[in-house]
């Protein structure tokens, strides 16, 4: 008897899951992209009450993995799809489209008490690969440099490695933080700290550095303006991947993001609009 009740209960729960749906799709992936896409989807759903969009994070790898296994229709990523993943998409016979919807500028941050306010790419490479160990070597006070980085698997980590470290390895002694917020927190309370975060995350408790990619000729401040006109060098695109099979459903949302109004939201959240 008890068993029967149990079974019917399970059936009811299952049954409610397979209800009729309006146009709806899921977006999943990078936590970097999450704040923008979330905001965009909120505004979009206000205007199109018939569409329901589920946005969840988890990471670029999770999102693209879900796209391959079919648990999501749209993936957002802070890195380009890897060849490995492309091959898997081919194996699964799934055609997809890649779109860039915004840019993100990575800024190098230090503790506000640090007097240094500018560094060259070469100096950054020295710091993050562990060759430069004390602020004194860079003209600062005698203080050990504490390097904070993101987890090895994050898109942010890979981008920074590729574009700032010239593909060299981070020193193994860097402290890796599970998320950007933790980097801000730690850099804010550690005097000798240095780390890198997305432009949107910068706040009073940390100081953003000007950087130079031309051996110290010009130093550029990380601002939305400088990122937009491409004078700030550490800028990366943010991607959306979606299955070709649901192009019609996704298109209105995509064109909303790329519209002037959508791009204004990108700016509001703290990222860099495309135009």
């Amino acid at each position: 008897m008890k068993k029967l009740v149990y079974i019917t209960l399970v059936m009811i729960v299952f049954g409610s899951a397979i209800q009729a749906q309006k146009t709806s799709f899921k977006i999943k992936g990078s936590d970097t992209c999450l704040p923008v896409i979330l905001k965009e989807s909120e505004e979009f759903m206000k205007k199109n009450p018939n569409t329901s969009i589920m946005v969840t994070g988890g990471g670029s790898g999770v999102g693209l993995g879900a796209l391959i296994t079919g648990t999501t229709e749209v993936a957002m990523a802070s890195r380009k799809m890897k060849l490995d993943e492309k091959l898997k998409m081919q194996d699964a016979a799934k055609a997809f489209t890649e779109k860039i919807f915004a840019n993100d500028a990575l800024s190098v941050v230090v503790n506000p008490s640090n007097k240094i306010d500018r560094l060259t790419r070469e100096q950054l490479e020295g710091i993050f690969t562990g060759k430069t160990k004390n602020w004194k070597e860079l003209g600062g006070v005698d203080l050990t440099i504490v390097v904070y980085s993101r987890e090895t698997s994050s898109g942010t980590y890979e981008f920074f490695k590729e574009h700032v470290l010239n593909n060299k390895n981070f020193a193994s002694s860097v402290l890796s933080m599970p998320a950007t917020g933790a980097i801000i927190q730690s850099v804010g309370q550690t005097k000798g700290a240095i780390g890198y975060v997305g432009l949107a995350y910068i706040e009073k408790s940390v100081k953003a550095l000007k950087v130079s990619f031309d051996k110290g000729k010009t130093y550029v401040e990380p601002t939305v303006e400088n990122a937009k006109n491409k004078s700030y060098p550490i800028t990366r695109p943010l991607y959306i991947y979606y299955l070709k099979s649901i192009e019609k459903t996704v298109n209105p949302f995509l064109s909303y993001i790329l519209s002037a109004e959508g791009q204004k939201l990108v700016l509001e959240v703290g990222y860099v609009p495309l135009k």
């Binding site: 790898g61 999770v62 994050s154």
Partner: peptide
């Protein structure tokens, strides 16, 4: 495991 699994491509080397 907790920090990296989320970003690792499913079924890949990592």
């Amino acid at each position: 495991i907790a920090a990296e699994l989320g970003e690792a491509p499913v079924g890949g080397l990592h």
